[in-house]
């Protein structure tokens, strides 16, 4: 069943001279994690803004075609309905902290206050998310004094507590160090296991290779390619078009060039190891 549907969608930001999205048609299914990659200015963030309805509810500009969320046109959704339907996690850890709460616990509960959830339920749901994301050590801290990585985890918790079925996550780790990045991806992994529908924009293709069910490649406002991670992220020609592929995939290509055994091009470390070990054994 298609859950989010784009039909010949084009969009131009106000005062912009080029189309940020140009005739995009795609169906997103329920319960899958979509990895969205591509060079900067390819249309990735615009897609996120559109699916969440920030376009056209917040950004004006020219929108053509149809964006359907659960069968209903984005223009017909009220903005506040979308905020209960679709969660959004942003790139910048600093802008997502409300700045009005004194503790992380209160910060996480803020969305529930806005939804009118009663106090007892609010406390239980916040506790649940805190435990789930292992934020116990942070709950008494002032959110305005946290590090970038901690803030990003709190931002995830603040959205997850609202329990959306669809999550749009736009480059969540671009400003984080490797250990915070790993923590954020642990969260994304847990959300995937909960069968949430996730649109994830991420430059780190190693992580997309690990977690995505489908990969969309954006180029100049269009979906240039899409398919399974194994099909897309093994393609060497993407490199020439300015899109990274995992280093193990490049390794696979180089091994093939040297006539070394490779059944298929690996895209994750474990696949690469498996292939190498198997290749070695075949001929022992």
């Amino acid at each position: 069943m298609s859950y989010i549907e784009l039909k010949q969608v084009s969009y131009q930001y106000p005062l912009a001279s080029e189309w940020a999205l140009n005739d995009v048609t795609y169906s997103f299914e329920k319960g899958k994690l979509y990895g969205i990659i591509g060079a900067n200015r390819g249309g990735k963030t615009t897609l996120c803004n559109l699916v969440r309805g920030f376009i056209p509810h917040f950004y004006q500009g020219e929108l053509m075609g149809q964006v359907l969320i659960e069968g209903k046109d984005i223009r017909e959704w009220e903005n506040h309905q979308l905020s209960t339907e679709i969660g959004y996690i942003f790139q910048n850890p600093f802008s997502q902290i409300s700045g009005v709460k004194e503790t992380v616990f209160e910060e996480i509960a803020l969305g529930l206050e806005n939804l009118g959830v009663d106090k007892d339920e609010m406390i239980e749901r916040t506790i649940q998310v805190v435990k789930w994301l292992k934020l116990e050590d942070l709950i008494k801290k002032n959110p305005n004094n946290l590090s970038g990585g901690q803030r990003q985890r709190v931002a995830f918790a603040s959205i997850i507590v609202m329990n959306h079925d669809i999550l749009v996550i736009d480059e969540p780790t671009s400003q984080l160090d490797p250990s915070s990045t790993a923590e954020v991806f642990e969260i994304i992994h847990m959300l995937k296991e909960q069968k949430k529908t996730i649109l994830l924009v991420e430059h780190k293709v190693e992580l997309i290779a690990e977690y995505a069910d489908e990969v969309l490649v954006f180029e100049k406002g269009q979906i240039a390619s899409y398919g399974s991670p194994a099909d897309i992220l093994s393609r060497k020609d993407l490199m020439e078009r300015g899109i990274s592929i995992p280093s193990v995939a490049l390794l696979g290509h180089e091994m093939r060039e040297k006539n070394m055994a490779m059944d298929s091009i690996p895209i994750t470390k474990s696949q690469a190891l498996e292939q190498i070990l198997k290749g070695g054994k075949n001929d022992d």
């Binding site: 091994m255 093939r256 006539n259 070394m260 055994a261 490779m262 190498i276 070695g280 001929d283 022992d284």
Partner: peptide, 16 residues
């Protein structure tokens, strides 16, 4: 890999 394990190299272009 190619030096340590000669066994890796199957030869033939069918892998390409």
């Amino acid at each position: 890999l190619s030096h340590q394990k000669k066994a890796f190299i199957r030869g033939g272009s069918n892998e390409k």
